[in-house]
Design a protein around this nucleic acid. Structure first.
Lengths: 362, 362
DNA sequence: ATTTAGCACTCTCTTCTTGCGAGTGCTAAT
DNA sequence: ATTAGCACTCGCAAGAAGAGAGTGCTAAAT
């Protein structure tokens, strides 16, 4: 990438102002406007000279020779890395959001949609929220439901309340009662165990139970790896109103596709925000960073939320490259924190359940 | 609405051809083109006369005086009601789709996304699929997981494999062991019961169990009413490529909003396709029908799938008003049937479980 | 050595004009 | 009832012209 040349103080100031102005106006910004609007102590001609320098460095560009300048992607990156100051959400808004989440406390199923809609509203872009996934799934309860002939519905409840479902086919017919007994036996043995421990004890089991146990292991393995395919979104219609997307052109289409194509989204998420990344740290992806062609026309602000090493999800905002990064980053961080707290309270028990004695002491 | 005036055979033929031609070309169709392309036995002048008559009746319109004619919404409605013939999917495609579903048999979680993507692909529009909901939920199994202090995660498994989750707060702290005992007692009593039966027996229970039972009743009540808020979509980006939506105008925005705003979508679904509607019957909504302003620029083809009175969901395609209705309706019906079969196999047990003896006989 | 005023120059955007071609409506003949 | 013929309408594309915005450069000022 562009070596981050050090800018002079004045160049930094100008880049900052140009970004601010461009974000607000959506059009290239002229030297005169800048001087007038911000009461600069130097003249438009000076500004133009500096602009030429900044263009030379690759931070600005002009759409055509007689137009003002606008930041390049490199310019935005420099801005985000060095010049930007975060703009905390107004206190009133913070309170409003906290209140909404508080009200949804008992409705788990409402958490993620709420986070998504809050993010979209406060950021003005399109939001994405993935369900939290645990890193070390722990067996909690198994339910086997006979559905049809030899078809069985397997429901596996993991610690922390995650639920996985799968159909399976028996090699020979069984009654519901026999199935329930098998499930009960497995529950007896496996409750509270992690994948490795379950795997270790498969040998002890009779063939039917062993088969089911193997399936359970594969489900749990799967749960620990993949990012959740449970993804919530909001605000796409607002995003498409942004001037860079109104041209029903390739630009808007590719953004829609990014949000629609789960696999693409998951690739972006898991690559730029691997589960290992610290909770609360916010990543900014500007214009696809040369990695993602479909993102060339937009930027993404991402964060991981949840409880490190226990259960985390990703959440973020997709907007135009010309985006109020300060505000958006704050919003993403804020929502990530508040959602993280709720998940934390819910997963807390990881300890208490494994050591019930400890819980009794409370 | 327009009284469905009876058209002469020739007027019907012309309207049909005009629809077909317009759907294909996206532009107003001229009298001469029609005659040449379909080797009509009468002249363009005659066609023009008939066109004038059809326009008088409200079935055709011209964007401006010297342009060809295109169907009005009323024209499309007449076409769908009287003139259209359904175009079954090519056998090869049917087989391909059936194969895909067959492969996904054991992965319930993949059914709806698959249905959605298949629909979008075969129809070229944007698809919507809602998860099936049962009309008469039956209690199957309860799981109570202590999470934090007095916070408890309640997981309720209903017959057929539906899973509902909710958080609740205890009035005083309990151990996980005590919670499990309570859940076991409730499971003992309630397994296999419907809402009314559960309600009838709340009186017999000690206070803690009674509280939980009341919560369960409200959850089950809720499950039987609402359409599912689990909604899958696909193909929006393709839809936005259609010529009527490329103008980033109000048109495209309103479509995106329809698909994004769950409440709106659910309103449309539950009003035009109430759970009582027969399985397999396909409904066509053209241009919002004056009821839905956001749908003014598009049409929707909807069907209900599943097992009548047991568990049903809705599924459909959103496309431009200028849509190949014959093909789309076939596609929707086909996918509804195939998905319905899968749900049927899964819910079949309703009988077998309630009368285990019956299952033993198999 | 910077900074700045002044000015010529470039390029887009809007508006207007013009001409073309597609398609119709009408009339009169079949 | 149908149709050929023709005048007429109207959108659309291409071209022309003018305005306006903004720069780059040069030469003067600090």
């Amino acid at each position: 990438m562009t070596d981050t040349h050090e800018l002079t103080a004045r160049q930094g100031l100008l880049l900052k102002l140009i970004v601010r102005e461009h974000v607000e106006s959506t059009v290239p910004v002229a030297s005169r406007i800048l001087v007038e609007k911000y009461n600069l102590t130097f003249s438009p001609a000076t500004v133009r000279n500096e602009m030429a320098a900044l263009e030379e460095l690759g931070y600005l560009s002009q759409p055509h020779i007689s137009a003002g300048r606008m930041p390049t992607e490199a310019g935005f990156r420099y801005f985000v890395a060095r010049l930007m100051e975060e703009q905390a959400l107004p206190l009133a808004e913070q309170r409003r959001i906290a209140h909404q989440f508080h009200q949804a406390r008992d409705h788990i199923e409402a958490w993620l949609p709420l986070a998504s809609s809050v993010l979209a509203q406060t950021s003005g872009g399109a939001s994405v929220v993935t369900a939290p996934r645990t890193m070390q799934p722990v067996y909690k309860h198994l339910e086997l439901i006979l559905t049809h002939g030899r078809a069985v519905l397997l429901i596996l409840v993991l610690q922390g309340g995650m639920v996985e479902q799968q159909m399976l086919a028996l090699s020979e017919p069984m009654t519901q009662t026999a199935l329930r007994d098998a499930a009960d036996r497995l529950n007896q043995i496996f409750a509270g165990l992690s994948v490795v421990n379950i795997e270790a004890r498969i040998g002890e089991l009779p063939s039917l139970e062993a088969d089911i146990a193997r399936l359970i292991v594969s489900i749990m393995r799967n749960a620990e790896g993949m990012p959740s395919d449970e993804i919530y979104q909001h605000g796409l219609s607002e995003l498409l109103q942004e001037p860079e997307f109104i041209e029903g052109d390739v630009a808007s289409t590719s953004v829609v596709r990014v949000l629609e194509e789960r696999s693409l989204l998951q690739a972006v998420l898991s690559e730029t925000l691997p589960p290992a990344v610290g909770i609360g740290s916010v990543r900014v992806l500007i214009g696809g960073e040369g990695r993602w062609d479909e993102l060339r026309t937009c930027s993404i602000v991402l964060a991981r939320y949840g409880v490190m090493d226990i259960a985390t999800g990703a959440l973020g905002v997709v907007g135009p490259i010309r985006m109020p990064y300060g505000r958006t980053i704050s919003a993403v961080r804020f929502v990530a924190n508040i959602l993280g707290e709720m998940v934390y309270e819910m997963y807390q028990p990881g300890i208490r359940e494994t050591f019930p004695d400890f819980a009794e002491q409370l």
